[in-house]
Design a protein around this nucleic acid. Structure first.
Ligand SMILES: [Mn+2]
Ligand SMILES: [Mn+2]
Length: 852
DNA sequence: GCTATTT
DNA sequence: AAATAGCAACGCGTC
DNA sequence: GACGCG
């Protein structure tokens, strides 16, 4: 009997006028029950988890399993006991709205019936349930046990454990949550005695008259095949995507893409550009018709296999040239339409499953099913390359069929390989006939034909003669390549109409290909469409290309706006720091650093941070506590990754000390921070910096300039690490006081905004122990996200503002980089002579370590 | 943004 | 699990 | 001693 208030907690937590979850007000089912239901709902709430619910006493007893179930009996999965849910919740799928309890997406990840193996009421009370699950994914014998010490607490911790039986599998070999991530809501409740079937398919819908075992995926839509169909194309990537469980891999076949339309008795074959090649492939046509297929579209690739069973592109071309096309094989890998259904909305897995059923009856030898390889992508690619294949094709398991190039289909190539325009050729040497090499090119963004180097190998004798003949027919007086291309003077030019497929080792920095091998002429591609192919990262092919961002770094809320004035996002700041990291690390290395963080963007409350005891900021390390024994350990950004992991923690600014960790009590620089007061015009700031420069020069001190990113400028004086902090600070104060005394209209040496109205306070206080100044290349947490940038003194005159550069326009400055400060490292000046010139006497107390 | 605490 | 609370520097100079 | 600056 259900307790009357069993669902009280459930209802209290939810507002059913807002959420679409069931209120569970329906009448409880009658006492007689044939079977108890169970459901596992995958719930993307604050964190992803799996809610296991077992029907008992008229409600669904529920546990939240953060890691989800495991078939490995050695895995004990934490299962937090949560409030009972109504049975009607079992079919709930959807989005729980923002602000509601458990906001986020919910899917029915598994469902079925459960059979208690011992008295479930007693077991539930006592904290030990043994049961069998009969679901689509979860099967076999399981146990839920309550952990000690947790009984009575509001949230009891239980453990979900797989018992040893025929369904148990080691975690190293199988992860059900990874391999079966999707919803089963469209499937029927499995029957206990139902035969093992692919869980992806419903047995309830069958297409008429197809193979006996053909079942239709639910996403199939009734539709007649269209007259034309454009193929789905794959995106070139430079490596497999991160999650291998989401992808299947097939061999990339080196031939021509061919789509087949079956329309009653008529069968037509189309190339990827929609050319009807039916007449060119009579044998293939005959073979397909023998399969007696229903109307639809087949998708695949035609190839000629060599004696080793490897596709041979040149042999394929030969077959067409000589009209001996019997040797052509057709490898089918997709089935976008079939037997009155549009299968494009189905997943590629489902379409392939259907396609495979077409091969259950013996099929003609030329027609093949393109198998997938059940191994990690690197291994598949490796063996494909060793076999001399072109590469592999990856398809996202859940992807639907779309008539365009899609990031859900990817190609991973063995060698780099692409088509080039033939722009000329050289004469053969020695005994070779025909041509020596082909001059290759590709069109750039401005549609100029760029020279890409030569290819001189990979031809057989016939290819050499044929090419020569073809090239002579299109010969030209002048070079088709863009002016200034450095090409052999004895070359023969041709009109840029022929396209060659070439494999090669790599691109040189000069934009030429190395180790090129000719693979054949392409007649299915237009010369004007040939561009330089650039592989992208598979994981970023969808949207952004994240250049040098380590994959280990998790960026949460990448699209959060940091600066509302510019719309600059967190991910943009990550990219900025990734970009300037090599330049900025020179200024950070070895120096204690302080961070300015902006958890709510720059318009929110900022805070300053000097310490961090967590170990979750990779690349930011704690320094020796002895450096500053009075406080928590200081920080150092020790690697470029540290910059990025800091940004993940909403760090915007990086401020450094004037000393390095290897000699923390002797500053290695002085900073003069020019802080203009109210009403100071830019030209005055500029001239004042110049005056500081001149005065320092008179003292014999070389100085370096940078923008502050704010209103003012920073002047840095690198010094020998000789005097202690107090001495250096007092000397810097003396310099500022001297300037303020000699040019009182311009400078003040006294801090406080009141003192500097219309004047510039030269802040020498940055020179104390523990004081910091914003680092070069740091972004400032202010509207516009300006950046502190190193400058040469010669640039000062044309400088328009201390905020001249920002995170958005820094690319204009990257080429200059740290160049303006090139001699910074070599300047190791003693300030002793400067002290003498200024008449500054170091305090005895401050210089006692000084011996000579 | 993260962690510990509470329910 | 989910919501919530607490946390993340410091010294110096000026008045 | 409080305030405020970076
Ligand atoms: Mn949940
Ligand atoms: Mn300043």
């Amino acid at each position: 009997m259900p307790k009357l208030d069993s669902l009280k907690t459930y209802r209290e937590k939810r507002d059913f006028s807002i959420t679409s979850e069931p209120a569970g007000l329906e009448k409880k089912a009658g006492a007689k029950k044939t079977a108890l239901s169970f459901v596992v709902q995958k719930h993307w709430a604050t964190r992803l988890h799996y809610d296991l619910r077992l029907e008992l006493e008229g409600t669904m007893k529920s546990w939240a399993v953060p890691k989800g179930p495991s078939f490995d009996p050695n895995d004990k999965r934490m299962a937090v006991h949560v409030e009972d849910h109504p049975i009607s919740y079992n079919t709930f799928e959807g989005e729980i709205p923002h602000g509601q309890y458990g906001a986020g997406k919910v899917i029915v990840w598994d469902k079925g019936i459960w059979i208690p193996l011992e008295d479930p009421h007693k077991g539930y009370r006592d904290g030990k349930l043994k049961f069998e699950l009969h679901g689509h994914k979860l099967k076999g014998h399981w146990t839920l046990v309550r952990m000690k010490n947790t009984q009575g607490q509001k949230q009891e911790a239980w453990l979900l454990i797989k018992e040893k039986d025929g369904y148990a599998r080691p975690a190293s070999e199988y992860s059900v949550v990874d391999e079966m991530p999707d919803s089963v809501s469209h499937l029927n409740i499995p029957q206990i005695l139902a035969s093992a079937e692919s869980p992806t398919f419903s047995a309830s819908r069958k297409a008429s008259g197809t193979g006996k075992n053909m079942v239709l995926p639910v996403s199939a839509v009734k539709a007649d095949p269209p007259r034309m169909l454009e193929p789905q194309l794959a995106t070139l990537v430079d490596g497999p995507p991160a999650d291998p469980a989401e992808w299947i891999y097939e061999i990339k076949l080196d031939g021509y893409r061919l789509l087949t339309r079956i329309d009653g008795k008529e069968i037509r074959l189309f190339t990827r550009n929609g050319n009807d090649w039916s007449h060119k492939l009579p044998d293939l046509l005959k073979a397909i018709s023998k399969m007696r297929l229903k109307p639809g579209w087949l998708d695949g690739e035609i190839v000629v296999l060599n004696e080793k069973g490897i596709p041979d592109f040149q042999a394929l071309q030969n077959a067409f040239d000589t009209e001996r096309t019997q040797s052509i094989s057709y490898f089918l890998f997709d089935l976008p339409f079939y037997d009155g259904y549009d299968l494009r909305p189905c997943s590629v897995i489902e379409r392939r499953e259907l396609l495979k059923t077409l091969f259950e009856k013996p099929a003609p030898e030329q027609i093949r099913f393109s198998e997938v390889f059940d191994a990690p992508p690197d291994a598949v690619l490796g063996s494909a390359c060793r076999l001399g294949l072109e590469g592999i094709i990856g398809k996202r398991k859940t992807s639907t069929y779309v008539s365009r190039r899609s990031p859900d289909w990817i190609k991973l190539k063995c060698a780099r390989r692409q088509e080039f325009v033939i722009g000329g050729y050289t004469d053969p040497k020695g005994s070779r006939e025909g041509i020596g090499s082909l001059l290759l090119g590709y069109y750039d963004e401005d549609h100029q034909l760029q020279y890409a180097g030569n290819v001189g190998t990979g031809f057989n004798d016939k290819a050499l003669r044929d090419l020569k003949a073809k090239l002579e027919r299109i010969s030209s007086e002048s070079s088709p390549f863009v002016r200034g291309s450095a090409i052999d003077k004895k070359a023969h030019w041709v009109k840029p109409v022929l396209v060659a497929e070439v494999s090669f080792g790599e691109w040189t920095r000069g934009g030429h290909i190395r180790h090129a091998v000719f693979r054949g002429l392409r007649t299915d591609k237009k010369a004007e469409a040939i561009v330089r192919e650039k592989p992208v990262h598979a994981d970023s092919a969808r949207a952004d290309s994240s250049a040098s961002i380590p994959p280990s770094l998790r960026i949460t809320n990448p699209d959060r706006v940091i600066d509302p004035s510019s719309g600059f996002k967190k991910i943009d700041l990550i990219r900025y720091y990734a970009l300037v990291a090599p330049l900025m690390m020179e200024h950070l290395k070895g120096r204690p650093v302080s961070l300015v963080r902006a958890p709510d963007g720059i318009s929110g409350q900022l805070f300053f941070q000097k310490h961090w005891d967590k170990e979750n900021m990779r690349g930011v390390s704690q320094l020796d506590p002895d450096l500053d024994p009075e406080h928590e350990p200081l920080l150092e950004v020790s690697t470029a990754e540290g910059l990025l992991s800091a940004v993940q923690m909403n760090v915007i600014e990086f401020h450094t000390w004037n000393a390095t960790k290897d000699k923390i009590d002797k500053p290695d620089r002085m900073v003069f921070d020019l802080d203009p007061g109210e009403g100071v015009q830019w030209p005055h700031i500029r001239e004042s910096a110049q005056l500081v420069f001149i005065f320092l020069k008179e003292l014999g001190l070389k100085s370096f300039l940078k923008t502050s990113g704010g209103k003012g400028l920073h002047v840095i004086v690198p010094i020998k690490r000789f005097y202690n902090w107090d001495t250096v600070k007092e000397f810097s104060q003396a310099i500022v006081q001297h300037l303020a005394a000699t040019i009182p209209r311009r400078f003040v040496a006294k801090s406080g905004p009141r003192n500097r109205v219309g004047k510039i306070f030269i802040d020498y206080l940055r020179n104390g122990f523990g004081a910091t100044t914003v680092s070069a290349w740091s972004v400032r947490a202010q509207p516009g996200l300006s950046v502190s940038v190193p400058l040469a003194w010669e640039e000062l005159e044309s400088l328009t503002s201390g905020m001249r550069w920002s995170a958005s326009n820094i690319h204009e400055r990257l080429d200059r980089g740290n160049e303006p400060w090139a001699d910074y490292q070599t300047v190791k000046q003693s300030i002793t002579p400067a002290m003498k010139r200024l008449g500054f006497k170091p305090n005895r107390e401050n210089t006692k370590q000084k011996t000579a």
